[in-house]
Design a protein around this nucleic acid. Structure first.
Lengths: 184, 184
DNA sequence: GGTATAGTTCAATTTGAATTGAAATTACGC
DNA sequence: GCGTAATTTCAATTCAAATTGAACTATACC
């Protein structure tokens, strides 16, 4: 819910997700900010924080990271790292690169953000819209057929709902097209 | 998280939020569908289900509803109804109309959906974007100044992030304008 | 003013999703 | 193949957010 008052002093508290380890302070600060950037967006994007954090730590590293490194840099369980990496691979947010020697898999962001975003719109929004469509159809059928004033009101409201729904649907491709004019 | 497999038979199970009471079956069916329509969207919109349900039941009624009627039609506690109505009033999703006699307040949807949606974009998305902006600024400052290849990579990534962020910001007004060409 | 009725508040509880961690599995080097 | 390390799986746990409900406040009626 939208909390009633503004947050208190709104200090820039970092979410304490990044473990300092023995790395240089400024690096840790950078990573923390990056992780927080994605963690903050996590809710909007509909992914768990841990997943966002993993993406963030990978994104903040110029060098591909191994499973172990991710685990050690984040205060997150091994299980979560495993699951998080799976999700990120599935949606194409990261890719595996084989280290020079045949050592463990290394992960680096798949910078095809365009695809990522397209996929996000696809999944989260389109799915939502489809579900909405079918509900609207059902509602249409469930509408009282009478010509009473009441029935008329309902018919109007449903119509309005449908109109908005269809607008939203039309907006998706517009948004996609717009974003296509975009950076890498 | 995005559950791994598709939902099983995906039957059109209504969420059992609407209490039949002694009203005609077809009406209850209609209300249930309407409530579910909004409840389904609740997550995307970032409101609790109970709030969505309350909006749904009000939207499904041609006649303005009283507090008591809302409470009796939904399987939801009095406290939730009270809180839910407050939220809905605050965001302008419903309005109070005084019943002819001086009886209790009655609630009806404020059909200015355009405003509702604008406000939603405003709150949820703009807020998100603003938070993002400030994080990006901080990140900019935290960026290692060296000209190493690694630093270069990070600078590039940050740039890309900023570009997307700014695209998203530009998209908002486009979306607003687009929706403005819309029904009531 | 007294009492019943309607609505609000908020601490305690419930709920559902995210996370953990330990056991099971897989992959690897020898 | 055998043992070790890396990763996955999933039941149990934790955690945050939503919901409840009982005490409280405001309002209306006599």
């Amino acid at each position: 819910m939208v909390s009633k008052g503004a947050h208190p002093p709104e200090s820039a508290t970092l979410s304490r997700l990044v473990l300092p380890g023995d790395r240089p302070e400024h690096l840790v600060a950078f990573e923390s900010q990056m992780v927080d950037f994605f963690v903050e967006a996590a809710d909007l994007l509909g992914v768990p924080k841990s997943v966002a954090a993993i993406y963030g730590i990978i994104f903040a590293s110029p060098q591909p990271l191994s499973f172990a490194e991710i685990e050690s840099r984040l205060d997150i369980s091994k299980g979560s790292v495993s699951q998080g990496l799976r999700v990120l691979r599935e949606v194409g947010a990261i890719k595996e690169v084989s280290g020079e020697t045949d050592r463990a898999e290394l992960f680096t962001p798949d910078l095809e953000m365009r695809k990522l975003i397209a996929r996000f719109l696809e999944n989260r929004l389109n799915k939502q819209l489809d579900a909405g469509s079918s509900r609207l159809t059902t509602l249409q059928k469930a509408l009282p057929a009478s010509r009473s004033a009441d029935a008329e009101v309902l018919r109007e409201r449903l119509k309005s709902l449908q109109a908005w729904h269809s607008k939203a649907r039309q907006l998706l491709p517009v948004a996609k097209a717009f974003l296509k004019l975009s950076p890498r």
